[in-house]
C-alpha cells in the first residue's frame, strides 16, 4: 500500500509509528522494494506482504503520511485509520490524462529551451514530447511493462524528431529528442535509490538503482534504434 514511490526510510518510519500506536512495543520490520516482512516478538507468527506492482503516485505517499501522523496524535482510531487507507488506495485523485499530456509537452519544450535549443524547434519538440508521453501512457496502461513502453515511446520520439527535421520544421534532431525524452526520465527511482542507500537500506537502494538503470537503458535503446536504421 505504501509502495507508490516512497523511500524506504519513510516506509520503515511509518510502519513503526503505526505499530507503536497500535500498542505493540517492539515491532520487527524488514522491507525491500518487493515485499514487507513484519513480526511481533510476543506472537509466534510473522506477516509477509508482497508488493507486486510498482507505480508512481506521490500524492498517495503524502496522504498515508498525513494519516499516520494523525493516528499518532490520537486524532483518529485504528479502525478509522484502516478505513482511510483503504479509501485512499482506491480513490486518490490522479491528474487526468489530458492534463498529464499538457504537462509532458510543457516539460519537453521548456527543458529544450533551457538546454539551449532554438525556438524553431519548439513545435517539433512539443509533438515529440506529447506523442511520446501518450504512447508511453497508453502502452503502459495496456501492458503494464514499463520498460517496453519506455522503449517504444523513445523510439517514436526519435522517429518524430528525424521526420520533423526531414520536412524542415526543425533544425537539431538532438535537441528535439532530448526534450521529448525528458518526461520519461525515471526521476523517482533515481532519487529514491540515492536516498535509500544513504539511509542504510542497501538492498532497496540497489534494486531501485537497477530499475532506474533499466529504464534509462530502455530509453537509450529506443533512440539508438532510430540512429542505427534511419
Amino acid at each position: 500500500m505504501i509502495e507508490n514511490g516512497a523511500d524506504m526510510a519513510r516506509v520503515d518510519d511509518t510502519l513503526t509509528r503505526i505499530a507503536r500506536n497500535a500498542g505493540i512495543n517492539n515491532p520487527k520490520i524488514f522491507e525491500t522494494t518487493t515485499g514487507i516482512l513484519m513480526s511481533i516478538p510476543e506472537q509466534s507468527s510473522a506477516q509477509v506482504e508482497p508488493i507486486q506492482k510498482r507505480t508512481i503516485d506521490l500524492e498517495k505517499v503524502s496522504l498515508v503520511n498525513q494519516n499516520s501522523r494523525a493516528f499518532q496524535d490520537g486524532q483518529i482510531s485504528l479502525e478509522e485509520f484502516r478505513d482511510n487507507l483503504v479509501k485512499l488506495n482506491i480513490s486518490t485523485p490522479f491528474f487526468s490524462f489530458w492534463l498529464q499530456l499538457i504537462a509532458a509537452v510543457v516539460v519537453s519544450v521548456t527543458l529544450m529551451i533551457m538546454y539551449g535549443g532554438s525556438s524553431e524547434d519548439m513545435i517539433a519538440t512539443a509533438f515529440a514530447g506529447g506523442l511520446g508521453y501518450s504512447c508511453y501512457y497508453l502502452i503502459n496502461n495496456q501492458l503494464k511493462i514499463r520498460f517496453v513502453s519506455e522503449f517504444l515511446a523513445s523510439f517514436l520520439i526519435g522517429v518524430i524528431a528525424v521526420f520533423f527535421v526531414h520536412v524542415h520544421l526543425g533544425i537539431q534532431i538532438g535537441m528535439i529528442t532530448i526534450g521529448g525524452v525528458m518526461p520519461l526520465v525515471p526521476g523517482v527511482p533515481i532519487t529514491n535509490a540515492v536516498r535509500d542507500v544513504f539511509a542504510g537500506h542497501f538492498l532497496s537502494g540497489m534494486a531501485r538503482a537497477m530499475e532506474a538503470l533499466l529504464s534509462a537503458g530502455a530509453i537509450g535503446m529506443g533512440i539508438a534504434f532510430v540512429f542505427r536504421f534511419l
Binding site: E59, Q100, A103, T110, P183
Partner: peptide, 19 residues
C-alpha cells in the same frame, strides 16, 4: 530561464502526481 525552469518542474510534478 526562470520561467522555463518553473514550468518544467511544475510539469514533471503533474506527471508524478504530487498533491
Amino acid at each position: 530561464q526562470i520561467l522555463c525552469s518553473y514550468l518544467a518542474t511544475l510539469g514533471f510534478g503533474i506527471i508524478v502526481n504530487i498533491p
